[in-house]
Design a protein around this nucleic acid. Structure first.
Lengths: 204, 204, 204, 204
DNA sequence: TATGAATGAGGCTTCATTCAT
DNA sequence: TATGAATGAAGCCTCATTCAT
């Protein structure tokens, strides 16, 4: 990467991280492109050289932040040699993600509203890792499924159910302790998740 | 109700139904208060006599539409004398709601994005039925729970899990057939719901 | 005055005193007719039965409050038999007014901006006392002038100069202590006033 | 100054002079920012690039117009070598200003309502001359005071008294001939001013 | 590639005034 | 006489986007 390319990347990254900060502190609607450009230290016109509009930069942020999160969880899982079943792996990842988001509620707030199946699949499937450290999570999941002792009936549906359940419940549990604080909700939630997996498992 | 009150109610209802139409056709963000007033056939200032702002009218719409929907489902359930267990009752209501929303995707689109636990509880609990035909759904649910042969461990959490799961999954299934058309998703979904209920049931 | 007239007077007085309170606390521009009516406990339409618009009620307030103030000062002067010369009388009245306004800065703020010669003359000359206790100050002044041992050359101009000087200086001195606190400014101010009077005095 | 800066200055000046015209013909309250922008031939948003709001542009106009006026008067004084005493200098400047405002009643109307001590000091003291031709009048005054044969006791108070007296009296005299046409009022007024100066003068 | 001045549509909200009751 | 619902003009201000430099 030459010096010019380097500078361009810096500008883009600066815009991305500034936008994230503003979106999470002031909210998406109340953040203007002007704000982003000014805080990123670039001209307003420059924004348009890198992103089509506010929605464009938001979507790119969601994809990037989600992937970062899943990558972190997955890398952590790789170190746990003692976790062998698909069920335990999935619970481990969920638990990791929940703890992470509990620590970083600002990120939760940003991602959660957008972590629906549609965007999720778009984000994690179509997402082109831009870095060696980023992972195509969807294929990782399929590999995990295939490696298991059990055969999963319709793994996509199973993932869908789990993601929607977890994604929508943790939001209010972590941010508002409703209907229970996340710590107390976990047992109920994991019990449901394990049930979902069992229902989809058939002997190979 | 005298003539004046009558007229006021008409104005308010006209604003509510116009707002619903515009929110569902053009989207919330792209609907302006000006649009609502103009289409409702009243002056712009009149809007502010009845609602504080766009968010206010939206919240009132959510509460009203949700209640209407649940009331309809509940009334239908009352006619099914053969459905006796809590589990069957809940499944019946969910099934009724799904079919209803499948027929009325515009309503689904409007409600789904807002049917989170927080708003749901606010909408259905604090909601003051404005009409003899409207129902306080939350107390109906608690009555159903108490009447059952089983005791439910933490009925609020159970309801929370079910609502979040159903609320977030049907959206993409009905509107985008993703990951499956709603018809095919139902068995999986109901299976999970029944499991959730069983997990929370203890002998009395 | 019959009961109906009584009630009308009460309404009008309520509107006047409410308007005064709002003008002085929130400012004239930021006070709406709606505010006045609501706080006075009458309907919005009722306002228009008594006053033409916001300017109308303001002018009536200025006239009323000014007269009240001058009347108070004049009545106080009447008790001071030892004050005999015109010069001393004028200084006494000014001193009384300043002390009064210093105690009641809200009133000062309201009156001062309007106590220009034009409005003053209109207010105090055309002002029809509405009450036995109110005084036509301009004729009182002319009587005082005629009673003095000296003849005053152009008493109207003299009054004009004094009023403009005092009216415009005390505002910033009392409210902002600029360029001096009113207590320290008084000697300078009274010295100028006495000079003005002397310049206009001729032997009879 | 490059072409861009040149254009910006033109825009700003256009807005300033348009605002002045509208304020003086239609009044401050009845002039909207829309009006100013439209008449200046710029977009509404452009206004906000240069001024915070209507009050901001008004204050800048007062400062600018006042300074312009005083500068003109002062430059004229500099040519009168025969005027040597402070008293004569001040009277000369006042006379010059009065004649000028008598010729330009629109300007009088605009400035007079705002030429209170507070704004005057702010305008003439804090005012940063934007042009070689503009003068910091307050320091000019202090120099004049120090150069005089007499020592002035509290020159700030003296200036305050003179400005308030002159500022408030000429308004009604010039615009309404009340209580006398300005020509006839002058002798009385200058007599008072000279008295004020004498009162403040002490032997060095 | 980078800038930021300029734009003007469009949003929100307030309010004086009217008028049917 | 009294009310207050209704109106819509009018004001303020923001902002995405363009374009000349």
């Amino acid at each position: 990467m030459n010096k010019l390319e380097q500078k361009k990347k810096e500008k883009k990254d600066s815009l991305l991280s500034t936008a994230f900060n503003l979106f999470t502190t002031s909210g998406f609607n109340k953040t203007s492109i002007s704000d982003i450009a000014k805080n990123a230290g670039v001209g307003k016109g420059t924004f348009y050289l890198y992103f089509r509009d506010k929605y464009d930069i938001r979507n790119k942020l969601i994809a990037h932040k989600s992937d970062e999160l899943f990558t972190k969880a997955y890398l952590s899982l790789l170190n746990k040699k003692e976790i062998t079943t698909l069920e335990d792996k999935i619970i481990y990842i969920i638990d990791y993600l929940i703890d992470e988001l509990n620590e970083n509620q600002v990120l939760l707030n940003f991602i959660s509203k957008n972590l629906s199946w549609g965007i999720f699949k778009a984000a994690l499937t179509n997402y082109t890792p831009q870095d060696a450290s980023e992972i195509d999570f969807y294929s990782v999941y399929m590999t995990m499924v295939n490696d298991d002792a059990y055969k999963i009936d319709n793994p996509e549906v199973m993932l869908f159910l789990i993601i929607e359940l977890v994604g929508s419940t943790i939001y209010s549990a972590i941010l508002y302790n409703e209907p229970l604080p996340i710590k107390e909700l976990k047992p109920y939630l994991y019990s449901v998740v394990r049930n979902i997996i069992k229902e989809h498992s058939v002997e190979k």
